[in-house]
Design a protein around this nucleic acid. Structure first.
Lengths: 349, 349
DNA sequence: TTTAGCACTCAGTAGCATAGAGTGCTAACA
DNA sequence: TGTTAGCACTCTATGCTACTGAGTGCTAAA
C-alpha cells in the first residue's frame, strides 16, 4: 500500500489530468505540465510500475494512461486535497437556504438543484425519513357523505393524508370525537410504543366506530412504518450528457434506465459504506449495482438535531472531480441540516 | 386543400411508412408495399407534385421522401384513422385504475407511467388545478412553542400545508378557536367569494390573534390562487432515446434542456389549440417553443364532473404514431377522469 | 395517362496510405 | 544505481479515393 513519493506524484498527475481532460495522459504531458523535475523517460518507468501494481491502465499501446478504479481509490484515500468552494458558490448556497420556504419538499428540491448546478453532475436527495419519528396530530375531515380525509402530522413536520371510505351516517361530530381520542392517546408516541395493548384501549373507547378506526390506524401505521419512502429527488441528470464519456448513446441509455429505478438508488443513499468524515465515496464497481458502469457516487447524510434523517448524493462519471464534489456535498449537508432544523423546529427566521 | 385521391394515398403511404421505419420512403417501396396498382414511375410523378405543394420533402437528391410538417398536418386532419388500443392495453389501463390509491399524486403518477409505457414516448400530466375550487377545512396545529402548522384542505381533496411562526404564548386552544372560526366562515367558499368584507368580519372576531390570522390567510390565498402549480408529472423521457431521431446527442441535449423547463410545458398543456374531439395535436413548429425541434405533442384535458381540471399529454418526435397516441390519450383521459371522481367524491369502490 | 428505360446524383462504405502520439527498450551518462 | 536520450515499434485517427446502391427526373414509347 505504501508508495514511493514520486510514484504518488505521477499517479496524482495522471488522475488530475485525466479528470480535467478526459484524455489518456502521456509521459510527456506529465513532465511538461506537472514539472516533477524528471524526464518523460523516467516517468515512463514509474508508469510501467504503476500499471503493474494496478493503479493505472492503458486503453491501447499507443495511448497514454488512465487511472484504474484502484487508482481513483488511492487518489481519494491518500492523495486528494479538498478543493474548497469558491466564495460565490458558498454565497449562492447560503442565500438560497436563507430564503423562506414553504415545506420540506421545497427545501429538498432547492438542495438538489444547487447540488447539480454546482457540480454539473446528477444529484440525488432522500427526504427526511420518518420511521422513528413520533406522531403529532391526527385529523379526520368529512369530505362527502361517505368519504373522509385522514391527515396525520408527524412531529418533524411531515404530513400524510388519504381519503378513505366511511359508512354513511358518520357525522362531523363523530369524526371530531375520534380525532380527539386518537390525539389524546397517541400524541408523542413513536410507532414502537403504539403497542397492541394501547390499541385495545382505544378500540374499547371507540367501539362504535370500529370500521373508520381501522382505516385511520392503517394510515397511521403506513405513515409511521413506511421506512424508505422510495421517493427520491433526482436532479441534473442531464448535466451528465455534457460529460464526454456519455457521448455514446448506449451508455446514456443504460445509465438512465438505472436512474429510473429509484428504489435501488435509495438503498445506496441510505447505506453508508466506507465513510470518511461523514462523506462516503463509491467508485465504479463499489456501487453495488452491476449495471451502473463507470460511475462514482458521493453521498453524505444530513441530520436534524444530530439525528441522521436522510442523505444527499452526487452521481457522476468515475472521472469525477472528487476533490470538489466532496467539499460541495459536505457543505450542502451542513446547510440542509440547518435549514431543516429551522423549518421544523422554528428556530431563527 | 382538396387533393387527388391517388395523391392522398401516396401521401398516406409515405407518412405511414416513415412513421414505421424512420427512413425516407422511395417510389419503389410504395409501389411494392402499398399496392396502389401503379408503377414506381407514376408514383414518382405524384411525389414530385406533392413536393411542389409542400407536403413532402427530400433530404437529398438520391434519397426518398419524408413528410413535411404540412404533410403530417394533412395526414392528421384528413387521412388518419384512429388506431384503437388492443384489448391487453385497455385491460392494463383499466386494471391500474381500479386499484386502490392513496392520493391524487399517486393517480397522476400511475397515469403518467401508463401513458409512457404504452406509447413509448414521454408523458406529461398536469395535476388538477385548484384555482376555482372551494375551501373545505382549515386546521392549525401547534408544533412547538413558536411554530404551528396550517393545513388547508380543498373540497376536491387537494391539500396544502405550511409551518408558520407564531408568537409564543398562543395555546392549542387558541388555535382550535381560530380554526373553528375560519371553518365556520369560509367553508364551501371559493376564493372569488372570500371578499374583503367577509375578511373584515373575521378579523373583528379574532382581533386578538391578528398576526397568526394573517399568516393563515396568506396560506389560504396561496392555496386558492396559485393557479398553475407549475408542477407537472413527467415520465418516460428516456423512452425517447430509443427513437432513432435522438441518436444524435446534440438533439437529445436540446430536447432535455427544454423538458427541464417545466413552466413552459405547463402553459402548453393548459392551452388548447386546435382541438378536435377533445384532443389537441401540435406538430413541429406548432409547439410554440422555438427551441423544441422535430417534436409533436398530443394533449387532452381531463375533468371532474364535467369540469376540466387538468391535462395530460404525450411528447414524441414529429414522426410519431399519431393514430395510436390520439386513441391512447383519449382513452386515458376518460379513465383518469373517472378515477379522480371516484377518489374525490367517493363514488364506487 | 401510364410506363419502361436510362443517365445522373449523392450518401455511405471499404480500402489504403499517412501522420502523430505514445510506448518500451537499450545504451550512455552522472 | 538511478536517470536520460535515442530509436524502433505499435496503434489510432484522419484524409483520400473509388465504388456501390438507392433513388430520382426526364424522355420516349405504349
Amino acid at each position: 500500500m505504501k508508495m514511493d513519493d514520486r510514484k504518488q506524484k505521477v499517479l496524482m498527475a495522471i488522475v488530475q489530468d485525466f479528470i480535467a481532460t478526459a484524455e489518456p495522459v502521456g509521459s510527456r504531458t506529465i513532465a511538461k505540465k506537472y514539472k516533477l523535475g524528471v524526464s518523460p523517460a523516467t516517468i515512463r518507468n514509474e508508469m510501467a510500475d504503476l500499471e503493474e501494481q494496478g493503479y493505472i491502465e492503458q486503453p491501447h499501446t499507443s495511448a497514454g494512461r488512465i487511472p484504474s478504479q484502484q487508482g481513483y481509490r488511492y487518489y481519494v484515500d491518500y492523495l486528494m486535497k479538498r478543493k474548497e468552494l469558491s466564495v460565490e458558490e458558498e454565497a449562492l448556497i447560503s442565500n438560497q437556504f436563507e430564503k423562506k420556504v414553504k415545506d420540506v419538499g421545497q427545501v429538498i428540491q432547492k438542495a438538489g438543484l444547487l447540488l447539480s448546478q454546482i457540480t454539473q453532475y446528477a444529484s440525488m436527495i432522500m427526504p427526511p425519513q420518518i420511521g422513528t419519528n413520533s406522531f403529532k396530530h391526527i385529523q379526520l375531515i368529512s369530505m362527502h357523505p361517505s368519504r373522509a380525509m385522514v391527515i396525520v402530522v408527524m412531529d418533524n413536520g411531515m404530513l400524510h393524508h388519504r381519503v378513505i371510505e366511511v359508512p354513511e351516517g358518520i357525522t362531523s361530530n363523530d369524526m371530531e370525537t375520534i380525532s380527539g381520542v386518537l390525539n389524546a392517546k397517541l400524541q408523542g408516541l413513536t410507532m414502537e410504543s403504539i403497542k397492541m395493548t394501547l390499541m385495545k384501549e382505544i378500540y374499547l373507547e371507540l367501539a362504535m366506530h370500529k370500521h373508520i378506526l381501522d382505516l385511520a390506524m392503517e394510515l397511521i401505521q403506513d405513515s409511521l412504518l413506511l421506512k424508505t419512502e422510495d421517493k427520491i429527488y433526482l436532479g441534473g441528470v442531464f448535466n451528465m450528457l455534457n460529460q464526454p464519456e456519455f457521448h455514446n448513446i448506449e451508455k446514456v441509455k443504460t445509465l438512465l434506465s438505472i436512474i429510473e429505478q429509484e428504489k435501488m438508488l435509495c438503498e445506496l443513499l441510505a447505506d453508508r459504506g466506507r465513510e470518511v468524515g461523514g462523506v462516503t465515496v463509491r467508485i465504479g464497481d463499489e456501487i453495488k449495482s452491476h449495471k451502473i458502469k463507470e460511475c462514482s457516487m458521493i453521498t453524505a447524510p444530513y441530520s436534524i438535531c444530530g439525528k441522521r434523517v436522510g442523505s444527499i448524493g452526487v452521481l457522476g462519471p468515475t472521472r469525477m472531480e472528487y476533490a470538489k464534489v466532496v467539499s460541495v456535498v459536505e457543505f450542502m449537508t451542513k446547510n440542509l441540516s440547518r435549514a431543516m432544523e429551522r423549518m421544523i423546529l422554528g428556530m431563527g427566521k
